[in-house]
């Protein structure tokens, strides 16, 4: 687990994940999907998970990239939340709201998304598409 608590550390983790994807020659669409999910997961952890906590409180990130899948875990120090309670941002009454789309994008771009620690830990897996689908 790597503890991070600043934008430069977010950029460093993203660069490390992208470098690992490059080592296995993941296609551009996969890099885009994983980077987006990582960014959204980290921003959610800091903005929502750590609301009310001191800014120096770190979010912990770990990742494992293999030839056929990549798994990322993001764990915040907050009390957690119920992921099922996030309103549907595509509903007509919510479409003009400026927030609430991060989790939906993560679910759309990743193959599997799980929550542990009462929602304070996000575990997401991306399965590399077969070559003809990439």
């Amino acid at each position: 687990m790597t503890p991070i608590n600043s934008r430069s550390e977010i950029d460093r983790v993203e660069a490390a994940v992208l470098a690992a994807l490059d080592r296995f020659a993941y296609p551009e669409a996969s890099r885009f999907a994983i980077r987006l999910a990582l960014e959204e997961g980290l921003v959610n952890a800091f903005l929502h998970g750590h609301r009310g906590l001191p800014p120096e409180e770190p979010v912990e990130v770990s990742f494992r990239v293999g030839p056929s899948s990549a798994t990322i875990s993001i764990s915040d120090q907050g009390p957690g939340y119920n992921p099922g309670s996030v309103p549907d941002p595509t509903a007509e009454e919510n479409i003009e709201l400026p927030s609430g789309r991060g989790l939906m994008l993560i679910r759309s771009f990743m193959s599997e998304v799980r929550h542990e620690k009462n929602g304070a830990c996000l575990i997401m897996r991306y399965d590399r598409p077969p070559p003809d689908a990439a």
Partner: peptide, 9 residues
């Protein structure tokens, strides 16, 4: 790349 925060803005 564009995040959901940018979409919000």
């Amino acid at each position: 790349h564009l995040s959901s925060a940018a979409l919000g803005k």
